[in-house]
Design a protein around this nucleic acid. Structure first.
Lengths: 195, 195
DNA sequence: GTATTAACTTAACACCGTTAACCTTCTTTT
DNA sequence: AAAAGAAGGTTAACGGTGTTAAGTTAATAC
């Protein structure tokens, strides 16, 4: 009785094991013990299936970030921990991270914007910390939401560079991550020099 | 008489116009007035063709960056200009930028590492500026090459977030880019607060 | 003038996402 | 109990993909 959830689970397994490129409808069907066309009874098309996978991966990422939040920490420590957790999640779950942030837009032309709402929760989480650190802490920031996006883009850059194997082999990954994360967080603390 | 160069040119046109996902061997062949299999006389497979395209796109990017270099500028201005040029190139040539930095590794399993050497020139260019600014300027950096990678990863993050349409619709792109770039460069100028 | 090589061809293989049409089986309605 | 419908499944097929094998044609080299 392979239903929606079974298909999703099988897909997730294949995605994590073989990556998005190898995740075909026929392969999913075979692993679910069902014909390929059956999937279309539960999902409109592959994009919709992918979307469902993205949603669950986003939830997983959000959870991983929140797990590293402690009320007793000051804003900077919070940012540091979250930044570290973000990159760690990406490196430990490259296939899932990839579909969250790296699937190319022209491959999913009708990607519904409202489904990305879930990701916004992550930005709002970042923005909240930044806002907190900005009011009663040492963070010098005037537009928290925009800064949250900047932070996120920076972290994404670090993660994606490693995942897509674009890091120079001379540079050790671990060292790069910790230096980059430290540098990025530092950028939020520093006083601006007047122009 | 479509030879290697002709195929490359046709491929480049299709890539820029329709994107990587739509760039099929058969389509290239049709536009080159040749059978699909002919391409395999000049390129081992699609990955190799793609690699050649990546190389030429990298050269184009390197040129775009160098064009914005002026000896009369101080290190910070140089970094600012290059950073701006980097993101601008990405946004103005999204398809080419995508294949340079966003093509997933599992789609090109046998990607020869030494071919990425060309990209290194770009890092070295960044590293040189950082090194210069570190010795006789206000940049506080101890590992120039690693810092170059950090800078590049951050810029890539900003570019890729926009190209892959992951930027919140509430945030205006232009403003985001300029604020993010400014913030990133600022991060290289700032004094480190002692741990 | 034979041999080699470069450039090309068609036919085919094994995949892909997706659709159409059809078949069960179980549940609900009359 | 009979009819209707929904839920879950099927096979066959369309048009696409990258790629390989085998064969052709034309020029160039000895």
């Amino acid at each position: 009785m392979p239903l929606r959830e079974d298909i999703l689970e099988v897909s997730r397994t294949i995605l994590v094991k073989d990556g998005f490129g190898k995740m075909s409808m026929r392969k999913i069907a075979k692993h679910a013990g069902v014909s390929a066309t059956s999937i279309y009874l539960h999902f409109q098309n592959k994009d919709e299936l992918l979307l469902a996978l993205i949603e669950s991966s986003i939830a997983k990422l959000a959870l991983a970030l929140e797990k590293n939040l402690s009320d007793s920490d000051d804003s900077i420590t919070k940012l540091e921990k979250i930044a570290q957790a973000f990159v760690e999640f990406a490196l430990n779950n490259p296939q899932e991270y990839e579909i969250i942030y790296m699937v190319r837009p022209e491959e999913m032309p009708k990607f519904p914007k409202e489904k990305f709402q879930q990701v916004r929760k992550i930005y709002e989480l970042l923005a909240d910390i930044i806002r907190e650190g900005s009011s009663k802490g040492p963070l010098s920031v005037d537009k928290p939401l925009m800064s949250a996006y900047t932070l996120w883009a920076q972290l994404h850059g670090v993660a994606s560079v490693i995942i897509s194997k674009r890091l120079d082999t001379r540079i050790p990954t671990g060292e790069f991550v910790s230096q980059a994360v430290e540098h990025i967080i530092q950028g939020f603390i520093s006083q601006k020099t007047p122009a």
